[in-house]
Amino acid sequence: MSRTLPLFPLNTVVFPGMTVPLHIFEERYRALVRELLEVRDPAQRVFGTVAIREGFEVGESHGAQSLFRVGCVLQLTEVESNDDGSFDVVAVGRGRLRLSSIVTDRPYPAGEVELLGDDHDDVVAPELVERARSLFERYRVQLSHLHGEEVLTGSLPRDPAYLSWTLAATTLLPMPDRQSLLEADDTHLRLAMITRLLRDEMRAMDVVPSLPAVDVARTGWSPN
């Protein structure tokens, strides 16, 4: 299903279930928030985000070429207006999208997108699910040891699809790997990719006893 959505490109990959705090200060994005607040049904206050490719800037010279094609649909859930006209908002990832073209007739960035279906009905081998869970538990223990305090805390969901998105969002990975996980077409493939990436990360930490180069993202994950 195709539709036009406001776009808020980010320098990170957002996954379904993630909570994303944003400080809105540019006028074009203030206009986006103001328009969303005019939507009476809070569940319909949605916009899209796609990651900005490294080495490019979003602008007239690059346009859609500076953006990854697969991104996430976000629902605006919290808004705080500031005296200077800016907003502090929180949005939650609701699903995936594929960007087909940029729309230029609005006061804010927008795009024609295809909404991608979820994969909660996928059949996933139980042993793959448990392998991914076990590897992540070992990974965060090892990471906490290197960091000197407990990190990546919290319980993991039982649902395989939610689990795959949780692990994708919280494992400390570079943008290309995170984007590949977002683009994975089903839960089984995503969990298989995560198990490989977790093994690679733990081997790297064994060889170089220091924190991964990627900082913990300033985002959270929520199944709500």
Rank of each mutant, 00 (worst) to 15 (best):
S2G: 07
T4D: 10
P6N: 08
P9F: 00
V13G: 12
V14F: 02
V14T: 04
V14D: 04
F15G: 03
G17I: 02
G17H: 02
G17T: 03
V20W: 02
P21M: 00
P21T: 01
L22K: 06
H23E: 11
I24H: 06
F25M: 11
E26M: 00
E26N: 03
R30K: 05
A31N: 14
A31C: 13
L36E: 03
L36S: 00
L36V: 05
E38Y: 07
E38K: 08
P42K: 12
A43Q: 13
Q44T: 01
Q44N: 02
Q44M: 06
Q44H: 10
R45A: 00
G48D: 05
G48H: 14
G48S: 10
T49N: 07
V50E: 11
I52G: 03
R53A: 00
E54T: 15
G55L: 04
G55W: 05
F56N: 06
V58K: 05
S66L: 03
L67R: 06
L67D: 06
V70F: 02
Q75M: 02
L76C: 11
L76H: 07
T77Q: 01
E80G: 01
E80L: 00
D83W: 03
D84S: 10
D84I: 04
F87V: 02
A91F: 04
R94N: 01
G95I: 01
R96H: 05
L97M: 15
L97I: 15
R98A: 05
S100R: 11
S100Y: 07
S101Y: 03
I102C: 03
T104D: 07
T104I: 06
R106L: 02
P107W: 15
P107R: 13
P109G: 06
E112C: 04
V113H: 14
E114A: 05
H120I: 03
H120A: 07
V123K: 13
V124L: 14
V124A: 14
P126A: 04
E127P: 02
E127R: 10
E130A: 03
R131S: 00
A132P: 15
R133A: 12
R140D: 09
S144T: 13
H145A: 11
H145S: 08
H145R: 02
L146K: 08
G148A: 05
E149K: 05
E149S: 05
V151G: 10
T153S: 06
T153M: 04
G154P: 12
G154M: 08
R158I: 01
Y162L: 08
L163W: 09
A169T: 09
T170E: 07
L173P: 11
R178I: 02
Q179I: 01
L181D: 01
L181H: 05
L181N: 09
D185Q: 15
T187E: 12
H188F: 02
L189R: 15
L191Q: 07
M193F: 15
T195G: 03
R199K: 09
R199Y: 09
E201D: 12
E201M: 02
E201V: 03
M202I: 04
R203E: 15
R203V: 09
M205Y: 12
P209C: 13
S210I: 09
S210R: 12
V214I: 01
D215T: 03
G220C: 05
W221A: 04
P223G: 07
